[in-house]
């Protein structure tokens, strides 16, 4: 798996506080290139905080405190030389709720490329089509790209969110419970999509649903109350969990 290079993403002794509330406790975790890591855990276990710390979205908040180190390809994501906007472009983020920007389907996907200076129509057409195809949405929307994205169904809107992220050609895709608001069929489509995407991207999926982790993840990590309880190949974690709390969680005793 590893070729001796640095991991794609790494957290080293990461702790995170919102005011007095500690959301992450000394988390150390590595994600190898082209890995598909699923982070599972009940609400309040710090999963979302970890994603938002990687993508530097919590920069906007006040009263937060972070200690430890986050790296991408061995480079400090919070280093003085690091440009947060560049970090966010290379590390894409799909949010829990499928939220389109109030504009057309086309403009939603073109939003990111336009931020990064793509203005030629032909070039934009190309990235938009590619993004939508990769998100397996193209066939459903190709005849109504100028329609408002707000008219799409929830499942389509979430695939649109993924297309929007793919269009800026990130290296890593973080997904924060992307199917929590979706019906089972839409959920399955997103899970299939993730399996296809992992060939080209490093993917971190957060879910509060252990079944989803079992279905999708090659590697899973279990978080509980801000702590990384255990991590390993999905097969092993689900059949022979090392920690009692993991066992209780996957057998549905809480969560």
């Amino acid at each position: 798996m590893t070729n001796g290079g640095p991991p794609k993403l790494a957290a080293n002794g990461l702790s995170y506080h919102y005011g007095d509330l500690q959301a992450l406790r000394n988390v150390t975790l590595e994600v190898q290139p082209n890995d598909l890591l699923t982070i599972m855990g009940p609400t309040g276990s710090g999963k979302t905080t970890l994603l938002r710390a990687f993508n530097r979205l919590n920069d906007m908040l006040t009263g937060t405190r972070m200690t430890g180190r986050l790296d991408m390809d061995g480079l400090d994501l919070y280093g003085p030389e690091t440009d947060p906007a560049e970090v966010r472009r290379r590390i894409g983020m799909v949010f829990a709720l499928p939220i389109p920007l109030p504009m057309s389907i086309y403009d939603n996907v073109a939003y990111g490329p336009r931020l990064h200076g793509v203005t030629r129509k032909a070039e934009l057409d190309e990235v938009v089509e590619k993004g939508l195809r990769d998100a397996i949405l193209w066939d459903e929307v190709k005849d109504r790209l100028v329609d408002s994205a707000l008219r799409l169904s929830g499942g389509q809107q979430q695939r649109l969110s993924i297309a929007r992220v793919l269009a800026v050609e990130p290296e890593v895709i973080l997904l924060d419970e992307p199917t929590s608001g979706l019906d089972p069929i839409s959920t399955l489509r997103i899970e299939e999509l993730l399996k296809q995407l992992r060939e080209r991207y490093t993917i971190v999926l957060v879910t509060h649903n252990p079944q989803q982790a079992a279905r999708v993840g090659e590697r899973v990590a279990f978080f509980y109350l801000g702590e990384l309880v255990e991590t390993g190949p999905s097969q092993r974690v689900f059949t022979r969990p090392l920690d009692r709390r993991t066992e209780d969680y996957i057998s549905g005793r809480f969560g």
């Binding site: 906007a85 894409g92 983020m93 949010f95 939003y111 931020l115």
Partner: peptide, 12 residues
């Protein structure tokens, strides 16, 4: 959420 989407795509 609109702001977060834009920031998350690398917008200034």
């Amino acid at each position: 959420s609109y702001r977060e989407i834009s920031f998350a795509l690398g917008g200034t």
